[in-house]
C-alpha cells in the first residue's frame, strides 16, 4: 500500500495526542496556565493528526458525511470517537485551566473514548481482509501501544513510558511476526484470483495496461521494500531502544525531549513500513504485490 504521508502523520500524531489527552485527564492535575498549555498542546496534536487525514480525501468539503455510517464503518466510528473524545475532555480541560473543580473521575470517560478511538483507527486497517498483513487483532493493539507510549512520554511518566515502549516493542514484533506470514495464510494467489490455478502454474503474460493507474499507485506500492530491513531497525532501535536508553541515562526534561524525538522517528518509520510492507491481494492480478 502506498505510504501516504498524510495518513502516516494522521495515525502517529493523533494516536500520540489521544494518549496524552487520556493521561492528562486521568493521571495529571495541572492547573491554571500550565493546564492550559498542556491541554492545548495535547488537543493540537490530536487535531493536527485528525486534520491531516482530511488531506488524503478527494473531496474534503464533504467530510462531515463521514459521520453518518457509524453502524457499519470503522472510519465513521473513528470520526465519531475522535469528536466525542475531544468534546468529552473539554469540560475537564476547562475545569483544570479555570479551576472549576470538576471531579477527576470525569476524565475516565474521555480516556476510555480516546482509547476506543485509537482502537477504531486500528480497526480501519484490521478490518481489511484484502490486505492480509493488516487483517489481525494485533493491529489495533499496535496502535494502542503507540498511543500509550506517546502519551506517557509527553506526560513525563518515566517508568510507565519505559514499560509502554517495551509494550510497543512487543506489539510491533507481534505485528511483524503475524504479518510476515499473513499473505500466505490468506490463501490468495494468482491461481485463486483468476481461478486458473487448477489448470497449471499461472503467470503474468501481459499487463492489462502499460500506463499508470490509481490501483498501481495506491495498492501496488513496491518501490521502497528494499529499505524494509533498515527501517525495521530504525523502528525498533531508534523508536524503542534509544528512547528507553535516553530515559534511563539522560535525567530531567532533556531525557524526555530526546526520547520523544526518537520515538517519533521510530513511529514514523514503523508507520511507513505498516503501509509499504502491506500487500494488497489485488497486486496478484498485476504480478506485483
Amino acid at each position: 500500500m502506498n505510504p501516504a504521508s498524510s495518513v502516516i502523520i494522521f495515525t502517529v500524531l493523533s494516536g500520540m495526542g489521544l494518549g496524552y489527552l487520556a493521561l492528562l485527564a486521568t493521571a495529571h492535575d495541572y492547573t491554571g496556565a500550565a493546564a492550559f498549555w498542556h491541554w492545548a498542546f495535547a488537543y493540537a496534536l490530536a487535531t493536527i493528526g485528525l486534520a491531516a487525514s482530511a488531506f488524503h480525501l478527494g473531496n474534503p468539503q464533504r467530510a462531515w458525511r463521514a459521520f453518518t455510517q457509524w453502524r457499519s464503518s470503522w472510519l465513521s466510528r473513528e470520526a465519531w470517537g475522535a469528536v466525542l473524545t475531544l468534546l468529552a475532555f473539554a469540560p475537564l480541560a476547562l475545569s483544570d485551566w479555570l479551576g472549576l473543580g470538576l471531579p477527576r473521575g470525569f476524565g475516565w470517560v474521555g480516556a476510555v473514548l480516546a482509547m476506543a478511538t485509537v482502537i477504531a483507527t486500528g480497526m480501519i486497517y484490521a478490518q481489511i481482509r484484502a490486505v492480509p498483513r493488516w487483517h489481525h487483532w494485533s493491529v489495533p493493539l499496535l496502535y494502542l501501544a503507540y498511543a500509550l507510549a506517546g502519551g506517557c512520554l509527553l506526560a513525563g511518566f518515566r517508568m510507565p513510558a519505559i514499560l509502554a515502549l517495551v509494550g510497543v516493542a512487543g506489539a510491533v514484533l507481534l505485528h511483524w511476526r503475524v504479518g510476515d506470514g499473513a499473505f500466505a495464510r490468506a490463501r490468495s494467489s494468482l491461481g485463486s484470483a483468476t481461478g486458473l490455478g487448477a489448470l497449471g502454474q499461472v503467470e503474468i503474460f501481459e499487463p492489462a495496461h502499460t500506463a499508470g493507474s490509481y490501483l498501481l499507485r495506491e495498492m501496488i506500492y513496491v518501490v521502497g521494500r528494499r529499505h524494509v530491513k533498515r527501517l525495521r531497525v530504525i523502528a525498533l532501535g531508534v523508536g524503542v531502544a534509544l528512547p528507553i536508553l535516553a530515559l534511563l541515562v539522560v535525567p530531567g526534561v532533556g531525557g524526555f525531549g530526546l526520547a520523544i524525538i526518537l520515538y517519533l522517528l521510530g513511529a514514523f518509520a514503523q508507520r511507513w513500513l505498516f503501509f509499504a510492507e502491506a500487500e494488497h491481494v489485488v497486486g496478484l492480478y498485476y504480478g506485483r504485490r
Partner: peptide, 16 residues
C-alpha cells in the same frame, strides 16, 4: 455526491 474520496472502499475490494 456523497463520496468524500477517502479510498477506503478501494482498499477493501480484493479485486481492484
Amino acid at each position: 455526491d456523497a463520496c468524500i474520496g477517502c479510498g477506503l472502499c478501494a482498499w477493501a475490494c480484493p479485486y481492484g
